[in-house]
Design a protein around this nucleic acid. Structure first.
Length: 222
DNA sequence: AAAACGGGGGC
DNA sequence: GCCCCAGTTTT
């Protein structure tokens, strides 16, 4: 059997993470999405965010939606125009083609609306589990756990799960994390992962979880 | 000069 | 599972 792990106190963890995220001023796709975005814009900005920094995602989304806020107007744009608008987001060429394809598919098959189930979302080009789950959660409030590199890295570092791929992390976390936290845990861990539990040289001395983190045992220099 | 960056797809 | 993908920022 696996190694024994202490059962995480999720209420306390979420409460602590909320304090950290409130101190974060980095504009993220979440700030943008929660307050004034349509499901379509949430989906597209999530596409843009793939392998791209938040500040860039935010600026790119704002430029694109300022010019074309909905599937109809985006489908009218040349892919080159879309590429220019979302530049310098990573993979901007591929993304601009996918964004236009998605606009067309939504118009043809879904009456211009974003589908509300993961199966249909995963059919869209450039949409994987991360993008699909984030869209479901942010757009429709459907409990869906979005596992990106932060939500993969941090629970493994903390010893909450022990997996080697994001998909396995998703299925492991779904089992142990209360459903009421599935949507917000992503934003909270991203804020934590950007400021303290960073991928490289994490700021463990400032971490409120340092006394319970197995990583500290591995490397006391941090 | 490297490494890293909120994945996804093709094989 | 493995490998590729793009261009900017950080180390």
């Amino acid at each position: 059997m696996g190694i024994e792990r202490p059962v995480p106190d999720w209420d306390l963890i979420v409460e602590t993470l909320k304090v950290i995220s409130k101190k974060t001023t980095v504009p993220t796709v979440f700030d943008f999405s929660y307050r004034k975005s349509t499901p379509f814009q949430i989906l597209i900005s999530t596409i843009i965010s793939l392998r791209t920094k938040d500040s860039v995602t935010y600026a790119s989304s704002k430029r694109l939606f300022g010019k074309a806020p909905d599937p109809v107007s985006i489908f009218k744009l040349e892919t080159g125009t879309i590429a220019r608008l979302i530049y310098p987001a990573g993979f901007y060429r591929r993304k601009s083609e996918n964004i236009k394809k998605i606009a067309k598919i939504l118009l043809d098959k879904y009456n211009g609306e974003v589908p509300k189930n993961i199966e249909d979302l995963l059919e869209l080009p450039g949409v994987g589990r991360k993008t699909a789950n984030l869209t479901l959660g942010l757009s429709f409030g459907i409990p869906a756990l979005c596992v990106d590199t932060h939500v993969h890295r941090i629970p493994n570092r903390m010893g909450w799960v022990d997996t080697n791929t994001p998909d396995k992390t998703e299925f492991a976390l779904v089992k142990i994390l209360p459903e009421k936290y599935w949507i917000e845990i992503n934003e909270l861990l991203v804020a934590f992962g950007q400021t303290i539990c960073t991928p490289v040289s994490p700021k463990c001395s400032k971490c409120p979880f340092k006394d319970n983190c197995p990583q500290i045992e591995v490397d006391k220099s941090r």
